[in-house]
Structures are given as structure tokens and as C-alpha cells.
Design a protein around this nucleic acid. Structure first.
Lengths: 171, 171
DNA sequence: GCAAATTAATGATTTATTCAAG
DNA sequence: CTTGAATAAATCATTAATTTGC
């Protein structure tokens, strides 16, 4: 009865993590679409899977960071014995400077360099998304994961722009 | 430079409010799509406009309610003079029972009856969405509002199912 | 009256929390 | 316990009301 959840293949996961590490933490819908298209070569995947992955990854990264900071603070406040440093007070309160709502500016792709996510993908993302950053499309996919062409006069072509040759990766 | 915001026409607004009042406070994506299709007869509109409208409307409804409750509490605590009722204490703390995360169950459409949003719409929503409540689609539209057919083998037909005759409403 | 200045509404986004599968 | 999925809350940003000084 319950629909099975999507589970990224190792290769898909690696690409996602790589993109994230390279600075793409908040992809717009166009970028999500491109990523989805690329990753779909390695297994069934939908737009929303990618979308949620970035949402969750960012949130939990942040969570982890907060937790660390909290632990640091506790360490400093609890341990009355030799606070590790007498240098100009890297005080606990400094840690609170962690910015909660940075209103993150659009991440530009030149922050993202060559990656497992193929240079072609980077090129495509740059040329087709960032160059018209104002014209964000909303791109749709059917829930069953079928490739759901979204034709608005001329269809949006995506997959054929990515390398089709095998990468030697096993899923 | 800034893209203009969508503004519901009076008729669109009336339909939205009507649906909301009738109990449809949390439409799923399929329902949003159907509503969008219907409303697009009365003016340019996109999927996300409808989606956001319900999100915001619900949130601000809730906000208003909380505010009222707060004011009630203040009234009771500040005014030492004759608390209006001696009945089994409709105490302020009772108000706090307001459920923050009700994990709202899917609103079923039979809660929604004949409405300004045309019986056809209701029928369609029921037959095409609720009957396969597990198969929520993600439906997409281009950001420019163009009608962006989403063809997955057979195209999704929507508009022609709604009445096209004028309703006598002025936008 | 009537604009410039403030404030209230509300559309659009992002972040935080919660639910639930595995 | 981890993490995909979904909803709620917080925030940003633009437009409409409204106020204010002339």
C-alpha cells in the first residue's frame, strides 16, 4: 500500500554530494530539473527527489552545525578548569554569530567547478539557467517518474545534451 | 526590473476563498493544478500562485486565531474585575490547547460541496484526484504563465472539461 | 487635493519541524 | 536512527492603503 521511497544510488548520491560541496546548496527549479535529467541515467528519479534532497541536506547540515556549536558552548561553560585559550577570547558568544536566515544569495555556478557531475552538466546549467536567472521555469514531472515531456511549443530537451557513454560506475 | 506579482482577480479570489471556506485548506498538487486550470479562465495564473495562496491563507488564518487567543488571555489576566463567566472555567490555559502541528489529514472532497467553483470542477477534482489519492502528480507550468502542456504519452486535458460559458462576472 | 512617507496586506521564498518508511 | 517526504513557520519583497505636511 505505501509507496516505496526513492533511494539514491551510490553514483547519484556522490554527484549530489559533490554538487553540494562545491557550493550548490540551493538550486533553483531549472537546475533541479537539469540535475534530475542527468541523474536519471543512473536510476529512476524524479524532480521532487532532487528537490527534497537538497532541502534536507542543507537543513541537516545546519542542524549538525548548531549542535556542534551548542556542544562547544557547553564545554566552555561547564569546564571551569583551564579554558583552552587565553588568546583574545574566542568566546562562546562569538559562536552564536551563526547566521540563521542568511537570505542566501543565488549561488553562481562559477563557484562550482569540474565535478563528478560532468563538465557538460556544469556547462549546461550555466548556459541554460544562470544566464537567464530571471526566467526561472517551473518544470514538472509525473509522480510515477515517467519522463513527462513538458512541451510548450518546442519541447524542453535535456537528456540528449548529457554524455550517454558509460562512466565505468556501477550503481 | 522586478517581476510583477500575481494579483487574483475578484472572481478568482472569490473562488479561492469559497473553496477554502468549504474545507479545502490543503489541496494536493493535483487539486492545485485543477484549480489553476479553472481559474485561468478568468485571468493569467500559474500553479505556484494557487499553491502559495493556500499556504499563505492558511498560515495567516492561523496567525489571526493565535492573536485572538492571546488577546483573550491578556483580557482575562489583566482585568481583575469581574471575569465574565463563572461557568466551569473556560480558562486561558484551555486556549493553549491550540494544536500546532495537527498533521492535517487529507481533506476529502465530499467536505466540499457545490460552490462558486462550479460543480464540474468538484466532479473533476473528485474523479481525477481523490480516487487515486496515492498517485499525487507533480504538475508543472512555465513561469511565464504560458499554458505549458505536460504531455506524458497522452496529454493531460483539463480546461475543456470546465464550462466555458460566461458567468456574468466581471473581472 | 495630492504626492512623499509610513504602514498594512499579501505574494513569493526559504528555513524549521514533523511524519513516517526502512 | 537515518533520511525521504510533507507541512508549518519565518522571512523577504512588492504592492495597496493610509497618513501626513504642504
Amino acid at each position: 500500500m505505501p509507496r516505496p521511497r526513492w533511494k539514491p544510488t551510490p553514483h547519484q548520491l556522490m554527484i549530489l554530494q559533490d554538487l553540494y560541496k562545491k557550493g550548490l546548496t540551493n538550486p533553483n527549479s531549472c537546475q533541479v530539473q537539469m540535475i534530475t535529467a542527468n541523474l536519471s541515467m543512473y536510476g529512476k528519479i524524479q524532480w521532487k527527489n532532487v528537490f527534497y534532497w537538497f532541502q534536507n541536506h542543507k537543513a541537516r547540515d545546519r542542524q549538525k552545525m548548531r549542535k556542534q556549536i551548542f556542544q562547544q558552548m557547553q564545554k566552555y561553560t561547564n569546564a571551569d578548569e583551564n579554558p583552552p585559550s587565553p588568546s583574545p577570547s574566542p568566546s562562546p558568544s562569538a559562536a552564536v554569530n551563526y547566521q540563521l536566515y542568511p537570505n542566501s544569495p543565488t549561488i553562481f555556478l562559477h563557484q562550482v567547478e569540474a565535478t563528478d557531475a560532468s563538465p557538460q552538466m556544469m556547462k549546461y546549467l550555466w548556459e541554460n539557467c544562470m544566464m537567464r536567472t530571471n526566467g526561472r521555469d517551473w518544470i514538472l514531472m509525473k509522480d510515477d517518474g515517467s519522463s513527462a515531456h513538458c512541451s510548450n511549443n518546442r519541447p524542453i530537451r535535456t537528456l540528449e545534451l548529457f554524455p550517454v557513454a558509460t562512466t565505468g560506475f556501477k550503481d
